[in-house]
Computed example of a mutant assay.
Amino acid sequence: MKRVEKKNLSRITDWCQAVMESRAPRGGLYIDATMGNGNDTLFLCQMAGNEGQVLAFDIQKEALETTRELLEKHGVHSRARLILDGHQHMERYAGPESADVICFNFGYLPGGDHRIATSPATSVEAVEQGLRILKKGGMMSLCIYSGGDTGFEEKEALLAFLGTLPPRRYTVIVNTYYNRGNHPPVPVFIFKE
């Protein structure tokens, strides 16, 4: 099995994957909280190896079908459990301090219906649950896209919540594409101490 090559580390998803890969142990439990087209799920399955497991969530059946096809194409489908449920229900599927890495891409399914998107209330709830699920020493990656109907509100709600996390328990790093206009995405990394 060949790993997906990083084409552009200045692209938010590639940058977040590089940071996850630098910190995550192989063979762990990884969660893709917003599977979308399955690219992060594939990345996590490859990182998991034969001993690891990936839980991937989405509310759209189309996302699950696209992801399943992608994983089968790369021969890693047995490493993932694809779950048709909202990310705010992660605790139904993973226990406290069980995950090594959790990743989010907030917004809508690329190429999908833009009216179906993550929302501020469920996204903050999902991050809260994810922090309880995350192991000590684990990390969470957030790709926050603004724009659309709820994107700015969601971005502000997430950043406000992250600002309240106790610094002795979490390190929160918010990155900025400083010289890009038009509301560039915000990559965020959370490390649980």
Rank of each mutant, 00 (worst) to 15 (best):
K2R: 15
K2F: 10
K6F: 15
K6S: 07
K7V: 13
N8F: 15
S10L: 11
S10K: 06
R11W: 12
T13V: 13
D14T: 12
W15T: 00
A18G: 03
E21Y: 10
R23I: 06
A24D: 06
R26A: 14
L29R: 04
Y30D: 02
D32L: 08
M35H: 01
M35G: 04
N37D: 05
D40M: 02
T41A: 08
T41H: 02
T41F: 01
L44D: 06
M47L: 15
M47D: 02
M47K: 09
E51S: 15
V54R: 01
D58L: 07
Q60G: 10
K61M: 13
E62M: 14
L70T: 02
H74F: 09
H74N: 15
H74P: 08
V76Y: 00
H77E: 15
R81F: 06
L84Y: 01
L84T: 07
L84M: 11
D85T: 03
G86M: 08
H87Q: 07
M90T: 00
E91L: 14
R92Y: 04
R92Q: 12
R92N: 12
A94P: 00
E97W: 04
E97P: 03
I102Y: 09
F106G: 11
G107W: 00
G107R: 00
P110V: 09
G112T: 06
R115S: 14
A117Q: 03
T118D: 01
S119Y: 00
T122W: 07
S123Q: 03
A126I: 05
E128N: 02
Q129S: 10
Q129P: 00
G130E: 05
G138Y: 11
G138R: 13
M139K: 08
S146D: 06
T150Q: 10
F152D: 05
A157V: 08
L159R: 11
A160S: 15
T164W: 01
T164C: 12
T164P: 10
L165W: 01
P167I: 09
P167E: 05
R169L: 14
Y170D: 03
V172H: 04
V174C: 08
R180D: 12
G181M: 07
I190K: 02
I190T: 00
F191A: 04
F191Q: 06
E193K: 15
